[in-house]
Design a protein around this nucleic acid. Structure first.
Lengths: 224, 224
DNA sequence: GTGGCAAGAGTGTTGAACAATCTTTTCTTG
DNA sequence: CAAGAAAAGATTGTTCAACACTCTTGCCAC
């Protein structure tokens, strides 16, 4: 399997602090850590078997990525995605993704990752594995961003998508959230491969507007 | 004086690690630390009078911002801006700034910061204080990004502009680098205030293309 | 001259200790 | 009994010293 996210690793140091950050990151997007939950330095350093200093370095990284917040002398907490942040994230996505695909040259190397992500999503859809479908969908969009050939945009998008996964974790009914977008992604890819980047950009914009509306509605409903 | 950058602080914790990071950041953009230079933990922690652990947290933050690089078991070094990174940065700037001003509603609050930055630049120009002119010019563009009303884009831009200042620090002849853009910024602001965001976006695009070419040429020349 | 080996220097990580701050409990006082 | 102040407890912030691990340097044998 080829994952588009391989093209944009967040930070790949072999150090223990980096590994620790990665483990916490995975726990976050897997939903094992609930938004709003406090992460006490003592207990986490115990359970992950690293020293407090190392753990604090990991916390610092994740805070910088927007996954944790740090209240002075109070502790670190898992970020609670707000409606404002969701709106902000989608604004950034529309700006970056649409420009990326709209200005991309034909047959860009990253399109290979787009295709791989679409096929992966279709595969997982048949297996009814909706979290995996969500992952594949996000890989697709990471590949779209990669069309811009910008290391910095790739990094930004990696952060944003991790934050968005946090929000998705709050919502149940993963099928409802991810199923419609498998085919939409396939259509967008087809438009791009047909050398019509303008139409692809427009379709992507519609996609994102729709997705934002769905997520916001689901968010408002789940808060009740 | 009103600085646009006040709207997008990078990270403002009252902790000692944050302060330390800020001090190093200032030294970096002031050119006191040369790109490529190694920052030994022992000597820096001594000269800044903080412990190694605290310093390492600061290093971690700055590494994440792209100002330092960390080679395992070798140490941390001031990033050396490459041509590739300059090209990347300008690509991101064109994408974000032009969209921000092109889609901004009239009389956006951030335009106040744009005007303040332009006036500041004109003032410093008469005083022949070219580094200050450069700062004001960057504040102008930070204000342009603020037109998009996106906290995340503001943060990204803060990082990018710090990195760009690193590159500027490598180049001499600050007047040549900054003088032409004072009036160009004023023109762009005028176009926006005249309710012609499309023309403003186009002018900004031309500006950025010109600026990129100048910086790259100066960079290539200074490398000889 | 080349290969490997030992010493040195620097980072990576740990644990304990203490200071600073917030929270909770308890005690005083009206 | 209620309200506020003082004290105790818990958690984070910071420092220090020590050691493990890795890279570099220079020496020595061959």
């Amino acid at each position: 399997m080829v994952r588009a996210s391989e093209k944009a690793p967040i930070e790949t140091g072999p150090g223990l602090a980096d590994q620790t950050a990665e483990r916490i990151r995975q726990s976050l997007i897997a939903g094992k850590l609930v938004p709003g939950q406090q992460l006490s330095e003592a207990s986490v350093s115990n359970s992950l078997d690293v020293s407090r200093n190392t753990l604090r370095e990991a916390f610092r990284m994740l805070t910088h990525e927007g996954l944790l917040t740090q209240k002075p002398y109070r502790g670190v907490f898992v970020v609670v995605p707000s409606m404002a942040s969701i709106v902000d994230i989608y604004r950034v996505r529309r700006m970056i993704e649409c420009q990326a695909i709209g200005h991309a040259p034909p047959k860009h190397p990253a399109s290979r990752f787009m295709r791989a992500a679409v096929e992966e999503a279709q595969l997982k859809r048949e297996a009814d594995d909706w979290p995996a479908v969500g992952t594949a969908n996000m890989d697709f969009h990471a590949a779209v961003v990669a069309l811009a050939d910008s290391e910095r945009l790739d990094r930004l998008y990696a952060n944003i998508s991790a934050e968005l996964r946090l929000a998705f974790g709050l919502l149940d009914d993963a099928e409802y959230l991810h199923r419609p977008y498998v085919d939409l992604n396939a259509q967008i890819l087809a438009l791009y491969e047909n050398d019509d980047p303008g139409a692809a950009a427009q379709a992507l914009e519609d996609y994102l507007v729709l997705s934002e509306r769905t997520v916001l509605a689901s968010y408002a409903r789940n808060l009740a």
